[in-house]
Structures are given as C-alpha cells and as structure tokens.
Design a binder for these strands. Structure first.
Length: 151
DNA sequence: GCCAACGTTGGC
DNA sequence: GCCAACGTTGGC
C-alpha cells in the first residue's frame, strides 16, 4: 500500500465534487512523470487531495485508488481539452486511474503550513516552481501530515 | 494578472 | 543530441 498526493484545481474539480460523486476518473494527466506514478498505483493506495491554483492552496481531503491505471479515454476524444492526436491507439500514451472519496478535512492544511513542516521539506510540493501534479508520499510524510489534520 | 520555473517541441 | 523558443503550471 502506497501513499500519493494529487493536485486538482478546485474550479475544475474540487474535494466537494468528489464527495458528491463518490468516485471519479482521474484523467487529463499529460506529464510523463505523473503518468508513470499513475501506472504504479494499486487499488487501496491512499491519496491526499490537494487544491492548486486557488486562493488558499493546500491539502483538503483524502481519497483512495479504486481502479488501477487504464488508458485515459480523453486522449482519443477530439472534443476533449485533453485530446492527443499523436497517441497511438494500439499503445495509448496516457493513463488514468479512478479515485474514491474517503474524507474531507475540517480545515485545509495550507501550503504555507506545509512549508513549515520539516518532515515534508523534500517533497516536490513545497519546492518553488514545482509543477508535478501526481507525486509519491512517504509513510513518514503521511504520518507528519496526519498528525496535523482532522477529518 | 504577473511572472518564475519547468517540460516539451522542433530546428539545426 | 543540443538548446532556444514556446506553452503551461501554479504561487503570489
């Protein structure tokens, strides 16, 4: 069982959206490193849900992986923002997973706060200029975050 | 809205 | 295979 952190813009898809829908395909990832992380996920892996590009970026809830990686259908959909005409149908370039809602935090653990936690100092998340939208979380990092959150 | 940082593309 | 240009991410 592994831990992950996944970013989403709340204007596009928020923790409240996931809570309401229970499950959601996590598609649209178009970065090779993030894609490789998606492909290494297993059902039951735990996920920190992070809101990015918003007034108060931070961890807002938890989810878990409910389906392992499958070809991201949006890459073959010409009407999708994520359409990728260069992806070979017999060897799809992009993957998605399905995640299920677990909990919403009573209060977000803000990026400002995350930056002050020594145990998290090597996470790409807290590094300036970081753009990785899916990243692994170590058990020590998970524990440090869990110690500061209530759901 | 701005801009720094980064990944990707494409010319050579 | 290098690297400049470009587009995107994401904090502020």
């Amino acid at each position: 069982m592994a831990y992950w952190l996944m970013k989403s813009e709340p204007d596009v898809f928020s923790i409240d959206d996931l809570k309401r829908k229970k499950k959601e395909a996590w598609d649209g990832v178009r970065n090779f490193q993030a894609r490789n992380y998606l492909r290494s996920m297993a059902v039951g892996d735990q996920v920190l849900f992070y809101h990015s590009s918003c007034a108060v970026p931070g961890i807002v809830g938890k989810a878990k992986v409910s389906k392992p990686a499958f070809p991201d259908p949006t890459q073959f959909n010409p009407d999708s923002d994520y359409y990728d005409p260069t992806s070979p149908p017999d060897n799809p370039r992009w993957s998605a997973v399905e995640v299920a809602f677990v909990s919403k935090l009573k209060a977000p653990l803000t990026l400002d706060e995350l930056k002050t936690i020594e145990a998290l100092s090597s996470m790409p998340l807290v590094k300036r200029g970081n753009r990785l939208s899916v990243m692994p979380v170590s058990s020590a990092e998970w524990a440090a975050i869990a110690a500061r959150t209530a759901s």
